[in-house]
Design a protein around this nucleic acid. Structure first.
Ligand SMILES: [Mn+2]
Ligand SMILES: [Mn+2]
Ligand SMILES: [Mn+2]
Ligand SMILES: [Mn+2]
Lengths: 237, 237
DNA sequence: TTTTTTTGTTAGGTAAGCTTAACTTTATTA
DNA sequence: TAATAAAGTTAAGCTTACCTAACAAAAAAA
């Protein structure tokens, strides 16, 4: 049996893993920060997760999901994104409202329930934040995303998702005139205060580094995705 | 803030209260049995619930919900029954599948969510088990229900709901040919083994005392309901 | 009315999930 | 390379929600 807390840990490990392009493990402090808990707490829990063979790591080393652990994590992520889509599509929730509720709904235990929701939605590919929804068999495409601050001056990119799901941030994104699938051109960067000047739909505005680091984009001329099954991305079991 | 466990306690106190016709409080052992926990555990929690002013009772006395406690309990009960209806009506779950999942869904914190579900369902009056669904303002009708074993020989009654939500029991109910709103006539009672002979839709069968105690009915010639607002059924606050 | 049974309470203990404070190991940077 | 900073671990302690065992009060039966 997997507790709600354990599910949140495993899902976070997967998300942190996917948010880095490279094949890196996750750190204790990084995980703790992401879950808004203290490193000591994360460390305790990681011992239990290792015991249960859902993660693997050496003392003082990076943490990796095992195959079993990754399977659970993908299921939770799938539920989260399907619930967000349900709230957005069927119950007219707004972009910034869905995440908080989905954070709870993702822990409802019935497989039948989530499969029926999937069916009701017509087996959607993306959630309202532009994130890919894993299929029932656990397969999903990985975007090689960059954050907006990594895009060079003069280059164009497409916004695919966000890295901060807080209501405050999402409402700010809307205010700046940004949205999923918008094309963003980076016009200039101020060396004085690190502000980034961008153009979206003919409209020019300036955003901070902090803001830009929370906007995920794919650049126009790069390889953008690969299919990820249960076989990829886990450590040796 | 009210925890999931606390919500389950408060909801159970309300349900036990409603399942007795009379204006009686609930006992510690009775509550513990209902929640499948030990009386000592229930006793601990009741102290905390009293501290929080959600229940009121004297030591060794019967337990009553306060106005505040009853408000929370009604909200949870409303969510439970709306979710059951959603699963049954929109996702083609069967009668015996809905309860278990609703037991989890009832604890999702969003008011907007449950109101939207209510709206999607067209503000239904009854859940799939025949139980009344409290309105958003907390009002609902109370059936003066009896259990099937209390019906006298020769009398007819209408099945309105069940007192056991286990899959095993609900599937057995279906097998016996019973369902919500069926008219049941009590033909005879065996004094030897306490079996009750009933007639439903022209079909005659015998059921045990244990079975009959879990079938709620209203008798044809009694007063059957009264409206219950937040003002009724609580102890003095 | 006394005895027995049922019901409710107290005391002491466990596991999960969290905290702070002190410490160790690894990584960075001078 | 040595000093410093960052990352990770350990120890001790808290709260919630559960348990068993022993006991006290109230209700029912003899
Ligand atoms: Mn989300
Ligand atoms: Mn969650
Ligand atoms: Mn139910
Ligand atoms: Mn519940």
């Amino acid at each position: 049996m997997v507790s709600i807390t354990e599910e949140n840990y495993l899902k976070s490990l997967l998300q942190l893993r996917l948010n880095k392009g490279k094949e890196e493990g996750v750190g204790t402090n990084e995980l703790a920060e992401y879950l808004s808990i203290k490193p000591a707490t994360a460390n305790d829990m990681l011992k239990k997760l290792k015991e249960k063979q859902w993660v693997d790591y050496e003392k003082y080393g990076k943490i990796f999901l095992t195959k079993k652990g990754k399977k659970i994590a993908i299921e939770v992520l799938r539920k989260h994104r399907l619930w967000e889509t349900f709230l957005y599509e069927k119950l007219s929730f707004t972009w910034d409202e869905v995440h908080e509720v989905a954070e709870q709904l993702e822990h409802i235990q019935s497989i039948k329930l989530i499969d029926k929701i999937d069916e009701m939605l017509g087996f959607p590919e993306f959630d309202p934040h532009g994130e890919i929804i894993p299929k029932k068999n656990g397969e999903f495409k990985i975007h090689f995303k960059k954050t907006l601050d990594e895009i060079a001056i003069g280059e164009s990119c497409k916004m695919v998702s966000v890295n901060d799901n807080s209501t405050t941030f999402l409402q700010y994104v809307v205010k700046v005139g940004l949205g999923i699938n918008n094309t963003i051109k980076v016009l200039s960067k101020q060396s004085y205060d690190d502000l980034i000047e961008i153009e979206v739909n003919g409209h020019i505005s300036s955003v901070s580094q902090r803001f830009a680091k929370n906007i995920f984009v794919i650049c126009k001329n790069c390889e953008t995705s690969k299919t990820c099954s249960n076989k990829h991305f886990e450590h040796t079991d």
